[in-house]
Design a protein around this nucleic acid. Structure first.
Length: 423
RNA sequence: GGAGGGAUGGCCGAGUGGUUCAAGGCGCCUGUCUUGAAAACAGGUGUGGGGCAACCCACCGUGGGUUCGAAUCCCACUCCUUCCGCCA
């Protein structure tokens, strides 16, 4: 959420940022109108409240019952006015919050202007795609032949876009999760195991609600929402808190399943395990001082890259254009790994500097060491990494002519002696 | 699921309708004193909003209600806790 004062004082900046994102900026005018309405009501009601407070004090000191009753009657009427104004004010505030809540974050100045993900810029590529002297198989063929991915089982249980990992396949994913978490702990993150269902308030704080309600699963009897990413509970951990400057930066890592409704067009990304309603992910998250966020962003990218590199995957880093930049992000890099079987670059990580956008929504501040007023922290999040696509890349890159798959060196300690996956 | 107890400022804790709309203590900051520190003493010390400012308004778990006036009374809810029951 943007600062209403910033919008009030610098509406042109916001309009421009919405233009960059290919959005209609008329929402800014709506916000300004609602803000003015709200402030007028505040002025009105507070003058009346102030009067009631002082007269009520007078009443408590009055001895003459007649005079007293006259005042009480007057205050009764004033009270009715205040109630009516209060109701209007509450409605005005709700309308304003709702209007501000759908304005996206301001992109950083060096985010390239673009229409969609085709305008993202490749910053660097590390490694070269492995060359094969046999016919490369996509993971859906490999996985089925090896008996480690069971697509029919997934359909039987939950329909399309669900799958079952079996035997060494399930174990390989578990190995990846454990290894990645250990990796992030070494990189200085504190591991958290959080609830995978949270209250609506937490989703609002993380910026998912109200705008992305249609992409979320939730319990219809109680206020429980399935997390679409660990970013949500990790943000929520410090909701409404004032942190000490000396605690920052705070680095968290967490493994969760992620649940997303995804209005996927039929026929797109249907094969394999690339895109589903439920997938696992290891997440990295930071709370830091505003002045630290640029550096922390680069560190987080390096942390994710290290994960790709140690797995021996060929990857590239892209800077998202304004057309692809997500609603709450100030600046985002994607990491894509090469999958020789599908013949495509797969996005395994999206690493964003959110600035104070999320902190303002979730009300997370820090108290400066010099004793100044509390300020909003900056937050950053990044996948480290998304499991299904990492699994795809590992299977497809480590396949051999006979259809077997070699386990990457770093995962061997987690595989109980298994070095090659065979049918 | 049943019965009881509880929720107050960074922390502890007083406060059952107004004459200080948060006492007192701890912690923290500043000053005095001191060679320095401690102690003692004095003052200060929450968050948000509105206003150019003086200043004003709101907030005692959350949401309603009663009242001229609510931390205080009423209703509902949430969370914590004790005991009982059930349970992986």
């Amino acid at each position: 959420m943007l600062d209403i004062k910033l919008i009030r004082e610098n509406p042109e900046l916001i309009r421009e940022s919405m233009h960059k994102r290919q959005m209609d900026p008329s929402q800014v005018d709506e916000v300004l109108r609602l803000d003015e309405k709200r402030r007028a009501l505040i002025l009105d009601v507070e003058v009346k409240r102030s009067e009631r407070n002082s007269v009520s004090k007078e009443i408590s000191r009055m001895k003459d019952p007649d005079e007293r009753n006259i005042k009480i009657e007057a205050m009764r009427l004033l009270g009715d006015e205040i109630s009516a104004l209060d109701e209007k004010l509450r409605a005005a505030e709700q309308a304003l919050t709702a209007a501000v809540a759908v304005i996206p974050n301001i992109p950083d100045d060096d985010v390239p202007i673009g229409v969609d993900d085709k305008d993202n810029i490749v910053i660097r590529q590390v490694g070269t795609p492995r060359s094969f002297d046999f016919e490369v198989k996509p993971h859906w063929d490999l996985g089925t032949a090896l008996g480690i991915i069971d697509f029919e089982g997934g359909v039987k249980l939950s329909g399309s876009r669900f799958y079952v990992l079996s035997g060494v396949g399930a174990r390989l994913q578990r190995a990846l999760i454990s290894w990645m978490l250990d990796q992030h702990i070494r990189q200085g993150y504190l591991e958290k195991y959080t609830p995978w269902m949270v209250h609506a308030e937490v989703l609002f704080g993380a910026g998912q609600l109200p705008k992305f309600e249609e992409n979320l699963y939730h319990d219809h009897l109680e206020d429980f929402w399935m997390v679409p990413t660990a970013e949500v509970p990790l943000t929520g951990l410090h909701m409404g808190e004032i942190l000490d400057e000396s605690e920052l930066p705070i680095n968290y890592t967490a493994y969760t399943a992620c649940f997303r409704r995804e209005k996927m067009s039929a026929g797109r990304d249907v094969r394999g395990i690339k895109r589903g309603h439920q997938f696992d992910k290891v997440e990295m998250y930071k709370f830091c001082l505003p002045a630290q966020s640029k550096d922390e962003h680069q560190k987080m990218i390096a942390d994710a890259e290290q994960t790709c590199a140690e797995l021996g995957l060929t990857y590239r880093v892209l800077l998202q254009s304004t057309g692809d930049l997500s609603f709450g992000a100030h600046k985002t890099y994607d990491i894509e790994v090469w999958a020789p079987g599908c013949q495509e670059w797969l996005e395994v990580s999206s690493i964003s500097n959110i600035g104070d956008f999320q902190a303002r929504r979730a009300n997370i501040k820090y108290r400066p060491a010099d004793g100044g007023k509390p300020e909003f922290v900056h937050t950053l999040n990044g996948s480290g990494l998304g499991l299904p696509r990492t699994l795809i890349a590992v299977l497809e890159n480590y396949q051999q002519a006979d259809g077997s798959v070699v386990i990457p060196e770093v995962l061997k300690p987690f595989m109980g002696g298994i070095e090659v996956i065979r049918a």
